[in-house]
Design a protein around this nucleic acid. Structure first.
Lengths: 243, 243
DNA sequence: GCCGGGCCTGTGGTCAGACCACAGGGTACC
DNA sequence: GGTACCCTGTGGTCTGACCACAGGCCCGGC
């Protein structure tokens, strides 16, 4: 197992070898969040590949949210390991939706089940931290917001609920799901005739969800968040179910 | 909508420009699954960037499961758009787990909630297609399987249930979750003293889940799949809850 | 006329070298 | 002692070149 040169002898893709090398380093604990990767030129000579191949692997890691690169010099320069899955998940969902790999309906359905679960969990928790969510709701009370700003705060509110649940996988997934249908949700607001009324309803529904969580009423929390999300998408859906 | 360059008028990263160009093409319908992308050199001259930058973008798309590249000539050569989110999700989850961005516990918890939902949905469905799942269970009845083979079939069974639910997002996510903890699950089987007994129990639990689905008993289906998964991970967990 | 092997072309895959912008740190000058 | 400069090393990009590959084409033999 200590020899990774033998396996690489039949490795057709150089950039994949770099990726596997770094994954191994991560699994072995040789690299951890906060650490700086060796320079691109160093990695290239160490692994016996060209710098372009190293860069392709690093690009993948960057998009996946594994590293953050910074030019220049000093302690903040170079490629630094971060583990922020939200960005990678968002890119993945967004592109898959663009390529028709993910139907919007499936995205919404997954959002529904995840958020209902989160809401139920929070209601069952002893003392969930809803501070961030409440501050976002306060910010959304500003009636001077345009729809884009309102929807951005709405997304942040739903994400804050996921973060309060403490499950990082669910949080990242929900961030990705939201990104995947962000364009859809934004384009859909134009379909709403009475935006003032709709936004007022959304505000009230948000408060209702928080109230149910605070009251430790898991069933109500689940129902309310479910109806809240499905109601909005039904409203912006071009033609839900005619026949 | 025609102008999204306003937010970031100047694009410092060339590969990102390529990515955005291709995403736009996908959203506009100029590119669809099955289509062939222009050659790397062509894209480079079209967008006014170097071929390296194009390749970095294509590498990202390949890892994310958006395209499949093939050298040579003919209709199968070049970069072809596919939309297979499973691969990208798997890479993302695997690397995030390696970088400690995703705790194993959160992965398992997410699996639990997704699979419970899937099982409940299938039980509520009128005529779910459980053929693939049943065939996998039959294959798992072979007592000559070694643990790795057994676990691979187990993963395929759970994935087949997700596919039967029809939600592609859930299917891809579950594939990713499974990949993320594949190493963990494989290493954990060594911790099980009585593998024959455990595998027999797992077989019985699988059948029980299918039975509940066929009986349209959503509650039982949810409970059984939940207990099935959490039971296995509790068994391979090194030290569940000592203090 | 038919068939087969070799060349041709275009593809992705990789490498090497060069240049740029950037940012920190050391140094020489004031 | 303070400040402006250069030096160094980083990622970011481009260019050009070569390779392996695979289908299509042409030409020769049968």
């Amino acid at each position: 197992m200590g020899d990774d040169a033998s396996a690489r002898s039949i490795e057709p893709r150089a950039w994949q070898a770099v990726l596997e090398h770094l994954e191994r380093k991560l699994l072995d604990g040789d690299l951890a969040p906060g650490d700086r990767l060796p320079g691109e030129r160093q990695l290239a000579t160490d692994l016996g590949v060209g710098r372009s191949s190293v860069r392709e692997a690093l690009r993948v890691l960057e998009v996946l949210g594994l590293i953050r690169t910074h030019a220049g010099s000093g302690p903040t320069a170079g490629a630094i390991i971060i583990a922020t899955p939200g960005g990678g998940m968002s890119a993945l969902m967004r592109l898959q939706v663009a390529a028709n790999g993910f139907p919007v309906d499936d995205i919404v359905a997954t959002r529904l089940l995840l958020e209902a679960h989160v809401a139920g969990d929070l209601a069952a928790a002893t003392a969930p931290d809803l501070g961030a969510a409440e501050r976002l709701l306060d910010a959304m009370d500003d009636t001077g917001l345009d729809p884009a700003e309102f929807l951005a705060l709405d997304a942040a509110f739903h994400l804050a609920l996921a973060e309060a649940s403490g499950n990082q996988v669910v949080t990242a997934t929900m961030a990705g799901l939201r990104s995947g249908i962000e364009g859809y949700a934004l384009a859909g607001h134009a379909r709403i005739a009475d935006w003032a009324g709709t936004s007022a309803r959304l505000r009230a529904e948000h408060r209702g969800v928080l109230d149910a969580i605070r009251a430790a009423d898991a069933t109500a929390a689940r129902t309310r968040i479910h109806d809240h999300i499905s109601g909005y998408y039904a409203e912006i859906s071009p033609d839900p179910r005619l026949p």
